[in-house]
């Protein structure tokens, strides 16, 4: 993976860059002056209380939400209203959702090859091979011809990760990928994510899994009330949080 990435990306600038980004819902200021840079190969973990704007922020990165002020660059391209630009960026950015959002009327395999065949325009046979390879990697190749409704939550989320990977993205976004799962299924999803991180994938994860953050995170971002309150390396972030709000949040989340 890592090799392919380096070959494909001569661009040595940041993978994602948010510069003075603001967003409002009507009059409500959800994102306030967000500045964030993600290098290629960097793993950023975003945490914060609910309603802090962390999901909105990563949804802006592939334009599921529109920002209104400031600049947002993905792999050197600026996100504007230009549809071609948006499509080009979405090709390079994979996203995993809290509720999996698999297509229930298609088999697992069909879910996996839809994007590659219609967006990347890869021959069907090749797409199936790639899909099977990723299904092996998330350890459920035997489920290829089942429908999402027949799988457990953990399996569905692994399929969803594989679906994103089939697009060979440069950047992966995770929007609370484990918070809709039963406790016994969280690990199987996190294992897949850790493996991915070890291969050098650029990742932005919104998650409350602090163990995961410690293991793979390069940078911790703490958000509250639409602002980035603190941004540190994990060791510093967990052992010596500077901001009061971060301390309070960490004490709440780590107390049990």
């Amino acid at each position: 993976m890592a090799n392919a990435q380096e070959a494909a990306a001569p661009n040595l600038g940041p993978a994602v860059e948010l510069r003075h980004m603001h967003k409002w819902y009507g009059e409500f200021h959800v994102l306030k002056d967000i500045n964030l840079t993600v290098r290629h190969g960097e793993r950023v973990v975003v945490c914060g209380p609910s309603g802090s704007g962390k999901s909105t922020m990563i949804r802006c990165i592939n334009r599921l939400e529109e920002h209104q002020r400031g600049h947002l660059f993905v792999d050197g391209l600026e996100l504007t209203n230009d549809l071609k630009q948006i499509e080009a960026i979405r090709k390079e950015v994979g996203m995993v959702f809290q509720h999996f959002n698999l297509f229930p009327h298609m088999t697992v395999l069909e879910n996996l090859i839809l994007g590659p065949t219609w967006v990347r325009k890869i021959p069907r046979k090749e797409a199936i091979e790639t899909a099977m390879m990723y299904l092996e990697r998330v350890k459920i190749p035997e489920q290829a011809h089942k429908f999402p409704g027949q799988l457990s939550g953990g399996q569905q989320q692994r399929v969803a990760i594989a679906r994103s990977l089939c697009m060979k993205p440069k950047i992966m976004l995770f929007d609370e990928p484990t918070s809709a799962l039963d406790p016994e299924m969280i690990k199987e999803v996190l294992d897949v994510m850790i493996e991915l991180a070890e291969e050098g994938m650029t990742m932005v994860c919104v998650t409350h899994e602090m163990g995961f953050a410690r293991t793979v995170g390069d940078t911790m971002v703490f958000m509250d009330e639409g602002e980035i309150v603190e941004m540190e390396a994990p060791e510093e972030f967990f052992s010596n949080p500077k901001n009061e709000r971060t301390q309070l949040f960490l004490s709440q989340i780590l107390s049990h």
Binding site: H20, H22, W24, G26, E27, H29, D33, Q68, R69
Partner: peptide, 16 residues
Amino acid sequence: TEKHEDWSRPPATEVG
């Protein structure tokens, strides 16, 4: 130019 704008409010084209 950005610095001269009032960034505490959404752009005028977004509200009202």
